[in-house]
Design a binder for these strands. Sequence first.
DNA 1: ATCTCTGCAAACCGTTTGCAATTAT
DNA 2: ATAATTGCAAACGGTTTGCAGAGAT
Lengths: 153, 153
Amino acid sequence: MAISPLAMKRFRDHLATQGLKLTSQRKAIAEVFFAGDKHLSLLEILDQSKSIQRGIGYATVYRTMRLLTEGGLATEHKFGENQARYEPAIDGEHHDHLICLDCGIIVEFEDDEVEKMQEKHAAANGFAVVSHKHEVYVKCVPGRCRRPGGVRL
Amino acid sequence: MAISPLAMKRFRDHLATQGLKLTSQRKAIAEVFFAGDKHLSLLEILDQSKSIQRGIGYATVYRTMRLLTEGGLATEHKFGENQARYEPAIDGEHHDHLICLDCGIIVEFEDDEVEKMQEKHAAANGFAVVSHKHEVYVKCVPGRCRRPGGVRL
DNA sequence: ATCTCTGCAAACCGTTTGCAATTAT
DNA sequence: ATAATTGCAAACGGTTTGCAGAGAT
């Protein structure tokens, strides 16, 4: 659970260049977000932030995560829930997700081949790719569940 | 805009086996859904259904589409909107989507290669694929827009 | 006759915003 | 000093449901 000093610096810089302020709330939220488990929901971030800075409100978490998302430091996902989840974004990197319906675990994977095929299909139809969402919903192979009983989705 | 008699028959059968009734409302909704443009929202289906059967309510459309979805006759999508869209489902078939952010057009494509790669990544992580969501967001190549000015998303 | 279905209106749930008080610069 | 930020509570928007009356078998 070590905080990423790099990410925090990027956040600081982003705020500075926009003329925005680094408040204790934003700091707490960023610490939770950059240090914690990936793919947290707003409520989970709020909850964990409160143990650093009590009294933080949902709206502040919401607005801070929007700030991070717009600044390219966070990516928002909706994994078949009606709730958003956030993960730290690393500049040019991109990956897709395996989401386990049994245990809720989310595993990332990269695949250049898939990206190439997307380009191909887009071009064939007169389009240029802007972004994509590629989520593979899976179930554990019997006996190989990493989190028995830990259902989330 | 011809109605698919096949799909309608499947709907009839599905209702019959479940002990459910074929009402004039359900018929109107199914006609719109199976005959019309693909990827309609609930509101769009409601709107079009009203011209066949006036007085239809939103809740009925909602419940009928849930019926169709659960019965495997419809597939629900959320294309980066906060609103669901539905398309007729054809038994074993599956396809992915190109969604144009310029003009709102949604184009379908199939790719067995991509599916194979999904299997590969899932297996490598101890999972079995259940389903997937693969949406490629695109923009029109200049001069090749099929629906100039017809923005939806 | 019986059990399903409908439309309405209200509840829901996550997200988004207006506002008066607070805080970082 | 000044402009940004916060927490609250209310608004929003799509979805979901309870219920009494209408309808299909």
